[in-house]
Nucleic acid binder design. Sequence first.
DNA 1: TGCTTTATAGAAACTGTTTCAGAAACAGTT
DNA 2: AACTGTTTCTGAAACAGTTTCTATAAAGCA
Lengths: 343, 343
Amino acid sequence: MPSVRDIARMAGVSPATVSRAINNHPTVGKEVREKVISLMNEKRYVPSVGRRQITNIAFAYADDISLGSPFDAALMHGMSECMERFEFDLMVLDLKRVLQPHETYSQMFIRKGICGAVLRTSSQSKKVCERIAAEGFPSVVVGERFDNPLVNFIYADSRRSSREAVEHLINLGHRKIAVGLNVVEDSDHLDRLQGYKDALAAHQLSFDSRLVLQVPARRDGGEQFIRRLEVMPDRPTAVYLTDPVAAVAAMVEAQRRGMRVPHDLSIIGFDDAQLRFLTFPRMTAVCQDAREIGMAAFAALQSLIAEAKSTRRVQRVLGTEFEVHESTAVPPVLRHEGVSIAM
Amino acid sequence: MPSVRDIARMAGVSPATVSRAINNHPTVGKEVREKVISLMNEKRYVPSVGRRQITNIAFAYADDISLGSPFDAALMHGMSECMERFEFDLMVLDLKRVLQPHETYSQMFIRKGICGAVLRTSSQSKKVCERIAAEGFPSVVVGERFDNPLVNFIYADSRRSSREAVEHLINLGHRKIAVGLNVVEDSDHLDRLQGYKDALAAHQLSFDSRLVLQVPARRDGGEQFIRRLEVMPDRPTAVYLTDPVAAVAAMVEAQRRGMRVPHDLSIIGFDDAQLRFLTFPRMTAVCQDAREIGMAAFAALQSLIAEAKSTRRVQRVLGTEFEVHESTAVPPVLRHEGVSIAM
DNA sequence: TGCTTTATAGAAACTGTTTCAGAAACAGTT
DNA sequence: AACTGTTTCTGAAACAGTTTCTATAAAGCA
């Protein structure tokens, strides 16, 4: 584990200059700074205080929305639960705010005494994660999947469960099934769309893009979804909403407009917490365990930090579970034909 | 701002010993350690690295439940929003886990390079907060109120709003109103009970302790509440539940058991996020703004850190808001007498 | 008494950071 | 061409905290 003085010797400069490079002082020449930073990434420099190494782990997010949702809270919960046995401490960082102009991400992390980062991202900030990975800083992304082999990530793939969910609807007799997708096309929402398409294909049903409605992953998104659904000619009898809050809000909005759930409209939602038990009727949903993702992310990061080699990649895909509750039933049309109501 | 060497000189020991005292090395004598720690608290020692002062703020919680709830997520959201303009970073700490045997809290904070802490607590860990305050470490408690003049806190008093809420029920015609309290008797839950009593007293209604049900502040607590309500002789026509999740769960459970809300049972809940809009019907609720509390807590802590004097106290009480939505109506008895239904 | 063990603490060597001072390059003036 | 002043960049030194090695004093035991 090289020190600032080691890096200084390798770069042919003084320790003071290396320190200034880390801390983004404007008085350091561009070539010198770049040389120092790349050397530090290459040699896996970790800051210390005195003879003690600093061991902070960052929970870093790039979007304003990120902090404050139950998903993030559960992620942190899982992380901190795993961290108890280690001497790590958890720091919460807003990447956009802490990054100074002309500063590398590695540089910023080192400046803050961080030796590894769990990156919480959406599709909007995927580039940021790729850049951090390219810089060689130990990091694990949660919430997105990457084709880029350099990026480490823990990801819950909901395609299969989504297919199960939609097949459940098809088996109940639904033929016209709408999907509510996030306006931001994250990997996970696209997975869910794929699962939807898989189910249709498996049952020889054709895909109709008019049944895919993009709404914000918020309460008003779910409400908007139902309003748009209501004015559709030949209204769908079932829907799959891929965001927890939007799903619950849609269920509420449907009921507010006089539709009975699941009697008039079957709803499948998505849940990463306990929301599915807090609706009436209880919400049939595709479920992911955010706490488990947080725990897996920390475990991966920990092993990345432990092995000094930068070669290893962690690209782990967890599953999701489809849970049948009470917001799905036989569609109204079939019910007139004497089919028993499965509630 | 004294350095380790200054403290060492004052205590008549070497810098090495002071460092060991901070880091809880077992080789330091008891008297020496105590002398060093008390000197550091007295002289307001803040750790540095090189010539730069360390500026970490802790979000410290003492109960296992604490992290992971929307309330905590919203608190942190508010804090980090305020922190952006300052050079502070946010660290998340589990007080019980990070505290080493025979270690003072101040010592632990200093050891981790923390210059101030927002303490998230419930009544179970009030002693911890008082101890930290008594040690003189800059801290602000959220979520509890203290009589102890040493403790700084930001607190949302829900007594008045609770009284408004219960008076709303009384004005609708309810005479038998049950209350669901947390099994842990936090200040805020006791406030709500007081508000309930205030409302009864203002309307010359007598208080009946059998109408106060203590249930855990969780989903199953809300469910339990309804089950216990159902078997009561002369069942109450309205309830006030003082926890968000328990309130929503109770509403769902009531509906599952065939009670119509608000037709058969009026429900008032508590909300610190957006849950009241995610139920059908929308939940009439006493609301507190967790983000605002987080922001106020950070602001207070910031001013405590800025002024070196330890004399100032921050004991700020915010308000809550009572919001009428759709889960409250005229009780069934009156409805038979021809009173119009207010939904 | 003499030896060993234990508890305690200091000196020195090592982290990283900043202040002060200096070198080198460039521009403007005489 | 020579002098001055400014800007840009860097290094030496002085400072921050921590740990390893070493030393001392007290206690325990033969």
